[in-house]
Each structure stands twice: as structure tokens, then as C-alpha cells.
Design a protein around this nucleic acid. Structure first.
Length: 416
RNA sequence: GUGGCUAUAGCUCAGUUUGGUUAGAGCGCCAGGUUGUGGCCCUGGAGGCCGAGGGUUCAAGUCCCUCUAGCCACCCCA
């Protein structure tokens, strides 16, 4: 059997790549206006980086990472997300010594060893956005506004931004305990998964889909009521700013994210029509992460969206790419002429196609039609002798005689 | 990682229930009808180890097992 691609890893062919290019071009344009610069970081990092940032007990670190020992014995991991590597680069460069906030974005592949399904791959691609060296609520608002603008300009219809605050190290433990007290008394009514969640991440019980858990969670304490004063005013300011900026969002007290480092503001962009994999973008604030990775006590916030998932929501490109000129040549002399003529035209930036073989005129025209060529230049022994070719307009079907030495000029780009 | 569905021509799919002569269709591709003119139409042609491996049987695309991949749900996430 022939060799197959690795499970969960897909080839992106030109038609699909065009959609990605459109998305990336728009991202670069929108992010530029907000002052973000593009960064590239390595796909491989030391395993320890992810263990320390994402959290030892998270699903990603426990069972989804592509981890291996390199030839020198170091444990390396293919990045499962972008934030950790980006923060590492930030600390390593000591750019934190320059006044912030530092606004960066990164486009590239991520790797997670999960069971593939639609919208979920083992190698997938993210556009990741981070603001480092800033704790102010304006930063949260700005980045959410940027996400909202981007999605709106992309023209996606039904995308909702969900927003929540997870509190901070000062107030979350208190909430967590209150929630545990509440749910602990109802342990018997929880599903098997949720009993496990009581130990790992009790907040997740809140958005369990099992009916019994939904009922058991009725009347559970709300994070919003347990936020400390600082978190409360931070969250209020974020909401005030994005509300005034016209961002459509809804509060979702059950929005809990799976990475340990998130605190305070978390958000997610959710689309219908994507089945279970409906989150097209997600992110949040992670003050404390930079310090935990050996940097200064600076804040940070960011989000990422998945190119594959966005692409699933986008219509195919409506205008197919088509050559401007197809040269149908009959006989060796004409074919030789067409080759050098094409070289000159292509040098001018004109998309020219030639027939790969010396086929009948009919076959060459069929191919020109197939490729959707705008015009066809027909040349054979007679035309070479006369120095004049037949230029055919494929849409209308009409055809005119043109001196061969004027072909290049005819397709010259308009002079500036 | 768990459970379910699926895999036949380049593509979309019949055929599998009730095993039985050379495995079909539409679209696409190639050629001819037009000795040098595309699309529409007509005619003809090429193209399949029926996902891979093993088993049952006189006989397997069809039944059984294993593997691989895709899809759906869970878990989790982009």
C-alpha cells in the first residue's frame, strides 16, 4: 500500500490555501491597525515549558502532546498552543525591559494528539494574538474589540462572543471552595465524569451536558458573586469599554477554559454549523504566567483562532483563477515561437498557458476553455510565415488578426 | 482515550440484505463527428487487485476477524 499522510494531518491544496490567504491577509490588515507585529517562534520547545505553563494536570499536557527525546536526550515537544513559546521568547529576549504593552501575533501550525474529526486535526493552524506587559482592562477590551472587528470583516454571520471572568488567585479559591461545598452534597447525582471533575476542575461541572448534572448544578454559587473587588472593577471596565465600542457579546458564567493559566477575563467566539467543534476562537488573560516562566511580574492576555475552523465557515472563492492568455500552437516552429513569447509575457507578469503537447487545435482550445482562459492566440505554420496570429476572445467567440510582434505590447500592463 | 457509522472508477454513488457467469451509472477524462476553432449535442474509448491483511467456502465486492483511514458523539479544544 502506498504511504499515507499521518493520521489527523491534512494537505492543504491551492483552492483551500486561497481561503487561508484571504483570512491571513485580513488578519494582518486588521491587526496592523491595532499596532500588532508578527512574530515567528519555533515549532519545537522544551517539554518543560508546556508542563509549567499549560498545567501538569490538563488534558493537553497529560495525553495530547507530541513529545520525544531528540538525539542529545532532551525532551522536546511540538507546540500544542502558541502562548507558551511566545512568552518564552519574550522573556528570553528581555524585551520586557522596554515599555509595553507588547503586541504580537503568530501564524503557524500547532500539534495535539487527539482523535480527529471534522474541525479537529492533530496538526492544525492558529492565528494567535498576545498582548504582553500590561494588566489594564483596556488591554482586554482592545483585544476583544479586535477579535470582533476581524470576525465581522470576515463576513461570518452567526458568531457570538461569549465572555466571563474567572477571578484571580485572591478570589477564585474561595469560589472554588463554595462550589465544592455545594456540589459535594450532591455528589451522588453527578455523572461519572463530573465526580472526577470535582477533583480536577469543579468549574467544569457547570457546563456538563448531562441532564442530571444540569439539575444538580441548579442554584450553584456564581463566580460573579465571588469576585474580589479588584476583579469586579476590572471586569466592569472591560464590559463598559467593549459595550461602548459596539461589540456584540453575551455573558456566560459557565465559560471555563481548559488551560490552567487563565485568570480574570476569558472569552470565546462560537459559531453554529460546526457541530461539537464550535469554538472558532478562544482566549483570556494570564497575569502570572510570565513570572511563572521566569520573567518579571507582568500581565498578559491573548486569544487564538483556528484557520481550519474558520475556513469551514467561509464560502469557497467565487472567482476561479484563470490565465489571461492561452497560446494554441500548431507545429514545432509555432510551438517554439510560443515558448519564447510566453517567456516574455510572463516576464511582464501576464499569466500565460501553453499546450503541454502538440495536439490538435480542437484539443488545445478545449483545454483553454477548461482553464477558463480569457483569450487564445492561435498560431500555426501559416501565421508564422505571415507574422500574424489569430487572437480569439473566449467569452464572445470573436477573433481578430494581430501582428506577432505586437502581442507583447497588447498584454503590457498599463503604464503608471 | 471510549462508543457508533463508513470505505466499490479521478469525483458522487448503486450492487452487500437472500455469497454464484466478463462489477455498473452519472459526472469528469481521451478521441472522433468538423483535413486548423472551445462551450451544446451525438458516437466510441481508457480507467477498478471492490481501503489493507488474514479466515470460512466448490465459489467472497457480498459472511467472519484484525489493521488503517474518514465521519459522528463523548472527553477536551482552535
Amino acid at each position: 500500500m502506498s504511504i499515507q499522510a499521518v493520521r489527523g494531518m491534512k494537505d492543504v491544496w491551492p483552492e483551500e490555501a486561497r481561503k487561508w490567504q484571504r483570512v491571513e491577509a485580513l488578519a494582518r490588515q486588521v491587526f496592523h491597525a491595532f499596532g500588532f507585529g508578527e512574530i515567528k517562534t519555533p515549532v519545537l520547545e522544551k517539554t518543560e515549558l508546556f508542563a509549567r505553563s499549560i498545567g501538569e494536570a490538563t488534558d493537553i499536557v497529560e495525553k495530547e502532546m507530541y513529545t520525544f527525546a531528540d538525539r542529545s536526550g532532551d525532551s522536546l515537544t511540538m507546540r500544542p498552543e502558541a502562548t507558551a513559546g511566545l512568552v518564552r521568547a519574550y522573556i528570553e529576549s528581555k524585551n520586557y525591559a522596554q515599555p509595553g504593552p507588547h503586541k504580537l501575533f503568530l501564524i503557524g501550525p500547532m500539534f495535539r494528539h487527539e482523535r480527529p474529526q471534522k474541525g479537529r486535526l492533530r496538526q492544525f493552524h492558529q492565528i494567535d494574538v498576545e498582548v504582553l506587559g500590561d494588566e489594564e482592562p483596556q488591554g482586554d477590551a482592545e483585544i476583544i474589540l479586535m477579535l470582533d472587528q476581524f470576525l465581522k470583516k470576515l463576513g461570518l454571520g452567526k458568531v457570538i462572543i461569549k465572555l466571563n471572568s474567572l477571578g484571580c488567585p485572591a478570589c477564585r479559591p474561595g469560589y472554588r471552595q463554595a462550589l465544592l461545598d455545594f456540589l459535594g452534597s450532591r455528589r451522588g447525582r453527578l455523572c461519572e465524569d463530573c465526580r472526577r471533575r470535582l477533583d480536577t476542575n469543579p468549574l467544569r461541572v457547570l457546563d456538563c451536558k448531562a441532564e442530571s448534572c444540569q439539575e444538580a448544578a441548579q442554584g450553584a454559587p456564581n463566580m460573579a458573586d465571588h469576585l474580589c473587588e479588584a476583579c469586579q472593577s476590572h471586569f466592569a471596565k472591560v464590559r463598559q469599554l467593549i459595550g461602548a465600542a459596539g461589540v456584540d457579546y453575551e455573558l456566560d458564567p459557565r465559560l471555563v477554559r481548559g488551560l490552567d493559566y487563565y485568570i480574570r477575563t476569558t472569552f470565546e467566539a462560537v459559531a453554529g454549523d460546526l457541530g461539537a467543534q464550535n469554538a472558532v476562537a478562544g482566549g483570556g488573560r494570564y497575569d502570572g504566567l510570565i513570572e511563572a516562566l521566569g520573567g518579571p511580574a507582568q500581565g498578559g492576555i491573548g486569544f487564538a483562532f483556528g484557520l481550519e475552523r474558520l475556513s469551514l465557515l467561509l464560502p469557497d472563492e467565487e472567482t476561479p483563477l484563470a490565465p489571461e492568455l492561452y497560446i494554441a500552437a500548431l507545429g514545432e516552429e509555432a510551438r517554439d515561437w510560443s515558448f519564447s513569447a510566453a517567456a516574455q509575457l510572463r516576464g511582464q507578469g501576464v499569466w500565460v498557458e501553453l499546450s503541454p503537447q502538440d495536439k490538435s487545435l480542437k484539443a488545445q482550445l478545449r483545454r483553454a476553455n477548461k482553464l477558463n482562459a480569457a483569450q487564445v492566440l492561435i498560431i500555426g505554420p501559416e501565421e508564422i510565415k505571415a507574422g500574424r496570429g489569430q487572437l480569439k476572445d473566449m467569452a464572445g467567440g470573436g477573433q481578430e488578426e494581430i501582428p506577432l510582434d505586437q502581442v507583447a505590447a497588447r498584454f503590457a500592463p498599463p503604464s503608471p
